[in-house]
């Protein structure tokens, strides 16, 4: 298959221009959901069509692309999207967070701190943080206009009254620069603190829902909470069984049907880096360490 049959990064230049305008507007009004004329992509809606369109509009031939899903470079959807851009844009790809200029992600923020000049593109299923309190778009847009966020605080308060906790584990709502309440995409709330004051540009694309929003570098992003119930980032109370990291988000892997399980970093690049640097977890991974050292 000849990549030349498609325009660079699949989309035609007019479409990319339209998307870039939406991105610029999003950057100018942090946290505001900009409607854009989302296109059909050669993958199903819900599989990252928004993120793919944002990435396509940002890519230049000199970029180095990293694609992760659930923090991992080797998950099916990440592999598929990475290959898509290798074919249609022939850009360099990497699994190393530090080497990437554009990182497209689904459901995680990399563990390694991002730097100025990097772009983090999120795939967003439901961009509207108020959607589960009010299903109608006409209503929620009005609520954003009027900064009418009482309903969200009531929901969080009801959680605390009933469970003693805010019962939202992922897609935990945030407030951007004291103005818009924003959905950070379904990242675990463990990742929420990384949204704020981030040196990289963060772009959010929701293809099916036709919305783009953005956080320019060093934007102040606050997870919603109450003075007496401060926001708490949480993760499994374990260390990584492969690299021993105690400060990374962990996946639970079931190892047998007798209740056996292990915990491993969801960020595969971070874990591999630590193993290569000689860190060893509970279940070790001598072969992995050796492989990485070679």
């Amino acid at each position: 298959m000849t990549a030349q049959d498609y325009n660079f990064a699949y989309l035609d230049e007019q479409t990319k221009r339209m998307i870039r305008r939406a991105i610029l507007k999003g950057v100018a009004v942090p946290g505001y959901q900009v409607p854009f004329a989302s296109r059909e992509m050669p993958m199903p809606y819900g599989w990252g069509t928004g993120g793919v369109q944002v990435t396509a509009a940002c890519l230049t031939p000199d970029d180095t692309l990293k694609v992760i899903d659930q923090g991992a470079d080797d998950t099916t959807n990440a592999v598929s999207i990475r290959k898509f851009f290798q074919r249609t844009a022939a850009v360099a790809v990497t699994e190393a967070t530090a080497e990437a200029t554009i990182i497209q992600t689904r459901h995680r923020i990399p563990e390694a701190a991002l730097t100025e000049g990097q772009i983090l593109v999120y795939q967003v299923p439901i961009p509207e943080p108020l959607r589960f309190l009010e299903p109608r778009e006409t209503e929620t847009r009005k609520m954003h206009e009027l900064e009418e966020y009482g309903l969200m605080h009531v929901k969080l308060y009801e959680d605390i009254a009933r469970h003693g906790h805010i019962a939202t584990a992922y897609a935990y709502p945030v407030k951007v620069e004291g103005r818009y309440v924003m959905d950070p995409s379904p990242i675990p709330r463990f990742d929420n603190p990384k949204l704020s004051d981030c040196p990289a540009i963060q772009l959010f694309g929701a293809g099916r829902e036709q919305r783009i929003y953005a956080l320019p570098p060093y934007t102040r992003v606050v997870s919603l909470d109450f003075e007496d119930h401060p926001f708490e980032a949480s993760k499994a109370p374990h260390d990584c069984d492969l690299c021993g990291a105690s400060d990374s988000y962990l996946d639970e892997v079931i190892t047998d049907d007798e209740g056996g399980r292990m915990f491993v970093c969801s960020d595969t690049d971070f874990c591999r880096g630590r193993v290569a640097a000689g860190h060893i977890g509970r279940l070790g991974a001598p072969d992995l360490a050796q492989e990485a050292a070679e």
């Binding site: 000849t2 993958m43 991992a72 598929s80 996946d251 892997v253 079931i254 190892t255």
Partner: peptide, 25 residues
Amino acid sequence: TFKDLPGGQILGPTFDYTHRLLDFA
């Protein structure tokens, strides 16, 4: 819900993981 589990992830017959690009060739 789990990355790996007893019995494994068996992808089987599906178009979920393949590209659907028109092949002009």
